[in-house]
């Protein structure tokens, strides 16, 4: 089925290997214009088409202001007025999808809620709060190494810890698809590398599909199955790079020749190197 879809429009970089997996996100000729106050429209995204396969971690890599966050927010149902096709599990996206979790650049924790109450917030909003939700939240906090911080307030945690809480909150309703908007961009280098391994670990344990926005080449290559390189605004796909490095990836992976070659390819697509 996925195979047929892909063949008929042939998005850039489609590979035979991926075609065995079911498609969770289908994006075709996605185009987004914004009306500016001055009157003339701003074309943020010219044309983006690709398939997101179940279980994959796909990075959207591009320069600042290229439209990658806009694209992610379209998929999240937070930005409207696009043209083209954006489907999650075959359903057109018009509003936030219930089976999606979103991690923002900022942790966006409610300062008046304890850690555990922040994590169970999505369940409260869905009116599914209860002992089960709390148990799930405890389990997730344990997974990210925050056991014992359940009753702390966000202002008592470091930036990295706050982002881990935000990750748990995005996962608490067991979403099929995790959307992440430069979630580790505000963290220091060492914390960020820890978070990379944590994310890969969580992906392994939950099997969630991830769409990950970043402007870090090494982050994109280290984490992803596929890196979709966005051009400068208005965005088109500059390259579609399959990262054929074996999982589990370890800090040593960052120093292999294959890793460097993939980084180089991405930086060529971004126009940084030749």
């Amino acid at each position: 089925m996925a195979h047929a879809n892909v063949q008929e429009t042939g998005p850039a970089g489609w590979t035979e290997k991926a075609s065995t997996l079911p498609v969770i996100g289908k994006f075709r000729d996605v185009r987004q214009e914004f009306l500016r106050k001055t009157g003339n429209p701003l074309l943020a995204i010219e044309e983006i088409s690709f398939d997101l396969f179940e279980g994959h971690l796909v990075s959207l890599l591009g320069p600042s202001g290229c439209g990658k966050t806009t694209f992610l927010k379209i998929v999240a149902g937070l930005v409207k007025g696009y043209t083209g096709t954006v489907q999650i599990n075959g359903v057109d996206v018009t509003d936030p999808h219930p089976d999606v979790g979103f991690v923002f650049q900022q942790p966006n924790l409610m300062p008046w809620r304890t850690v555990i109450k922040n994590v169970t917030l999505p369940m409260e909003i869905r009116k599914e709060a209860g002992p089960e939700a709390t148990a799930r939240a405890h389990e997730l906090l344990k997974l990210v190494g925050l056991e014992g911080f359940e009753d702390a307030y966000p202002n008592q945690l470091s930036g990295g810890m706050q982002q881990r809480v935000a990750l748990c909150r995005a996962l608490v309703h067991s979403p099929k698809l995790l959307l992440m908007d430069e979630p580790f961009g505000a963290l220091d280098e060492l914390t960020r590398m820890d978070m990379h391994d944590l994310l890969l670990d969580i992906r392994e344990k939950t099997g969630a599909t991830c769409l990950f926005v970043t402007h870090s080449i090494s982050e994109a290559v280290y984490l992803s199955d596929i890196v979709v390189v966005f051009s400068q605004r208005p965005a088109v796909i500059a390259d579609f790079i399959e990262i054929d490095l074996a999982y589990p990836r370890t800090p040593e992976t960052r120093y292999s020749a294959d890793f460097t070659a993939l980084e180089h390819r991405a930086s060529r697509a971004l126009g940084i190197t030749r």
Binding site: L78, P96, P122, I125
Partner: peptide, 22 residues
């Protein structure tokens, strides 16, 4: 903070939930 409101929207919160919870 607009980020908190956007978060609530991403969780499909109703307008009254956005008010009372955020």
């Amino acid at each position: 903070p607009p980020g908190l409101i956007e978060l609530a929207r991403s969780l499909r919160a109703s307008p009254s939930q956005v008010f009372w919870k955020v």
